[in-house]
Nucleic acid binder design. Structure first.
Length: 743
DNA sequence: GGATAAACTTAGGAAGCCCAAG
DNA sequence: CTTGGGCTTCCTAAGTTTATCC
């Protein structure tokens, strides 16, 4: 009932989405330039027209108009932005672009169409005050287990003991004196059976050893040379290091891109001595190939290392992992996700990124902020260095942070997905999505009502929400121009990204979407929509330029505020989670045949998973070796077929000879048949998966309890669905879901 | 109330690893 | 033993949402 939006009819057919990311598309390139120049004008224009140009002023609306005008004026989203941008523009270009003549913002309110019946929309209670966290959610109340404060304290001390013992252990082997309890982190802690923190506190105790820094720069041997203008040139260590970054990427297509080269060269020059700067003025005259060869040789050498040497490295890595890869959080030793600081290098943005090639600088101890408990043993900075700061903020989950120099954003070291702190959050996410399931009908009715609203902003909000719901689009924040690739989501979609077809391929009211979304992955979809949506889209597009926002009176913050009123904890992305999970559940129900054998059932699972991946537009570049591996598989299948007919013939002969003892031959036939079937299934699966990435949805959108329940119901070992890492992440679900679980 | 910073989740690609086939 | 290929893990960019500031 509630879950049957069937938003993805026709999408489950894998062929319906063209899979083109930026790599394959040039179309976007042209647009981009145009777009950049336009956007500023556009916003200026919006503020100009913002609240003055509603076209229709039928008498009956006079009273409301006052109200609306007021409201609208105060919420016009472009006023200040416009100023900011203009200034920026001036300083950047040294001139002001000409104003756009005809860029219109949408009028604030809309004449009701004749067919609009007026009736009171079922007003829904907003009475539910937001009570921080989904504490009122019964499903998410872990059993109250012992409340123990001194117990905890005791336990913590014990943990400390264990740990300090361990760190003394030179070998890095996890043997600790008294027991092997450490090897098997004491019977897997079931955090989901314990009470959660409420008040925004994330932990009470946190101790860790700080980050692992990137190894220092190792200068090139003197026989490896850099050439400028054909002549060998010894570079200063600083300049040389940056040069090696480029050399290492030499056969990547990045290094052929203009922006990349320009950014790189600019930043490289900053690292040069004044002498170097004076000489090296043209990247084209730089020859890195000697360096490049050297690195290739190095990596070959690494591959060719003896087993013993490889083993040594592995052990060393394990030692580092044991020392730095774990922390103690509230009595438990938990795995850290990214305990290694990102090494310096050249920034590799995705898609047409304006900053690609810039130098990502080396992070030093004095850049690092440490977060841990006051009463813990604080991590030591490397000898002779200092941390930027040590703080004790237990309202956040990170252990280490630093500011990155490309976008100026903060990077964090946090815990592994298997940790309590991440797991609880993940669980909570799915519970929120399940609460949406309970009220999604109401919300859908609401936005359908809102398509008829007299206020433009409400109509836009309602249509956007419809897309987010039906098509599982992302929210689509505005992005600062020139800082990132030009990509969009629902709220930031522009007129140029959609096409309207009153009729197409025998369907009415078809909308064609074509834009670059997150990671510059192309979203292409052609879907029929409801008539009212279609009419609204026409209205939103009136008098607009291609690069104007489709929803000019909407942004993610407005949308999320609205959603928050509809349901506690509701945000745009909850719809993605909800629709993904409910789709998996439905598809599993529909596709699984209990008569099937295990491989066939798993194929069904993968197909259900695939339906979700298609819905969420999770694409991947077809593996480079795809065609070949497909062929190989086919060869195997053919061989297996031959083998099968041989085995069958032998069986026949044996029957013909009246042998009674042909059981083994029967078995052989059976076994081979099964193997063949398995291969064929594998081939199908792989073919269908060519450009579709299942991992993302599996890891981030599908309530793991659905999969666990399915496994239990059909006797599929969970290992067939989740690998080791995934089982660790979803341990809570594996432990708690039984076969009756319903999302 | 809008801009910006901070925190945290989601994402695809590259590198690493491991195992089966040759 | 070597190779190739597929799966896993690592990496870090790019989103969303929340918090804070003015």
């Amino acid at each position: 009932m509630s879950g049957d939006h069937s938003h993805n009819e026709g999408q489950i057919d894998c062929g319906s989405r063209v899979n083109d990311s930026y790599k394959h598309k040039d179309k976007y390139k042209e647009k981009e330039h145009k777009h950049k120049d336009h956007k500023k004008d556009k916003e200026r224009e919006k503020s100009k027209h913002g609240n003055s140009d509603y076209r229709d002023s039928s008498d009956k609306k006079h009273k409301e108009k006052e109200k609306i005008k007021h409201k609208d004026g105060s919420t016009d989203k472009y006023k200040d932005k416009h100023k900011r941008k203009e200034e920026k523009l001036k300083s950047l270009d040294g001139k002001i672009k000409k104003e756009k003549e005809n860029g219109f913002a949408s009028p604030p309110y809309v004449k009701s169409e004749p067919e609009d019946e007026f009736y009171q929309s079922p007003r829904h209670d907003k009475s539910l005050k937001r009570e921080r966290d989904d504490d009122n959610d019964s499903e998410f109340k872990p059993k109250k287990i012992k409340t123990e404060n001194d117990k905890k304290a005791k336990k913590r001390k014990q943990d400390d003991d264990i740990k300090s013992k361990k760190t003394k252990n030179k070998k890095g082997e996890v043997t600790d004196g008294k027991k092997k309890a450490k090897k098997e982190p004491e019977e897997k802690w079931k955090w989901w059976e314990e009470e959660r923190y409420t008040d925004g506190v994330k932990w009470k105790f946190l101790e860790h050893k700080g980050p692992v820094f990137a190894p220092p720069y190792d200068p090139l041997p003197s026989n490896v040379k850099f050439y400028y203008d054909g002549k060998p040139m010894k570079l200063s260590p600083e300049a040389e290091e940056v040069a090696t970054f480029f050399a290492k990427m030499l056969d990547h297509e990045y290094t052929t891109k203009d922006i990349f080269r320009k950014n790189f060269f600019k930043d490289w020059r900053k690292e040069m001595t004044s002498e170097e700067k004076a000489i090296i003025t043209d990247l084209k005259k730089c020859n890195f190939s000697d360096m490049s060869e050297y690195f290739k040789a190095q990596s070959e050498a690494r591959k060719a290392m003896t087993k013993e040497d490889k083993q040594k490295i592995k052990e060393e890595n394990e030692r580092i992992l044991q020392e730095y890869g774990f922390c103690i959080m509230d009595n438990h030793r938990e795995r850290i996700a990214n305990f290694r600081i990102e090494p310096p290098g050249l920034f590799r943005g995705r898609g047409d990124h304006p900053k690609m090639g810039m130098l990502k600088r080396r992070i030093r101890p004095q850049d690092i902020i440490i977060n841990c408990s006051k009463d813990s043993k604080h991590p030591e900075p490397p000898p002779g260095t200092k941390w930027k700061e040590v703080r004790h903020d237990n309202k956040v989950t990170w252990l280490v942070s630093w500011t990155e120099n490309i976008q100026g954003s903060i990077k964090y070291i946090m815990l592994n997905p298997s940790s309590r702190i991440k797991g609880e959050k993940d669980w909570q996410k799915y519970e929120t999505a399940r609460r949406l399931k309970k009220c999604v009908d109401r919300i859908r009715n609401q936005y359908r009502e809102d398509w008829k609203s007299k206020e433009m902003r409400i109509r836009q909000r309602a249509v956007a929400l419809y897309f987010i719901d039906k098509l599982a689009l992302r929210a689509g924040n505005e992005k600062e121009e020139g800082e990132t690739a030009d990509t969009v989501g629902c709220c930031s979609v522009r007129v140029e990204h959609i096409k309207l077809y009153p009729e197409s391929d025998g369907q009415e009211y078809v909308v064609e979407f074509d834009f670059l979304g997150k990671d510059s992955i192309r979203y292409y979809n052609k879907v029929p929509v409801e008539k009212r949506v279609f009419k609204n889209l026409q209205l939103f597009m009136e008098n607009k330029e291609p690069d104007d926002d489709l929803f000019d009176r909407l942004n993610t913050s407005i949308l999320n505020k609205h959603l928050q009123e509809l349901m506690d904890g509701l945000t745009a992305k909850v719809f993605r989670t909800y629709n993904a999970s409910i789709t998996l559940q439905q598809q599993l129900k529909q596709l699984t045949n209990s008569e099937d054998n295990v491989p066939a059932k798993i194929l069904s699972y993968n197909r259900a998973n695939r339906a979700v991946a298609i819905l969420c537009n999770h694409q991947r570049a077809p593996p480079k070796t795809f065609e070949k591996s497909m062929q190989n598989l086919q060869t195997k299948i053919d061989a297996k077929r031959d083998q099968l007919s041989d085995a069958k013939r032998e069986l026949k002969i044996s029957i013909y000879l009246g042998q009674i003892n042909n059981i083994s031959k029967k078995k052989a036939v059976q076994r081979i048949e099964e193997q063949l079937m398995k291969l064929e299934v594998q081939a199908t699966d792989r073919e269908e998966n060519k450009q579709i990435a299942l991992g993302t949805s599996k890891l981030n959108y599908l309530d793991p309890r659905i999969s666990v329940a399915w496994c239990k119901k059909f006797g599929i070992p969970i290992e067939k669905i989740y690998n080791k890492t995934q089982r660790e992440k979803f341990a809570w679900a594996i432990d708690m879901a039984d076969e009756d679980f319903e999302f």
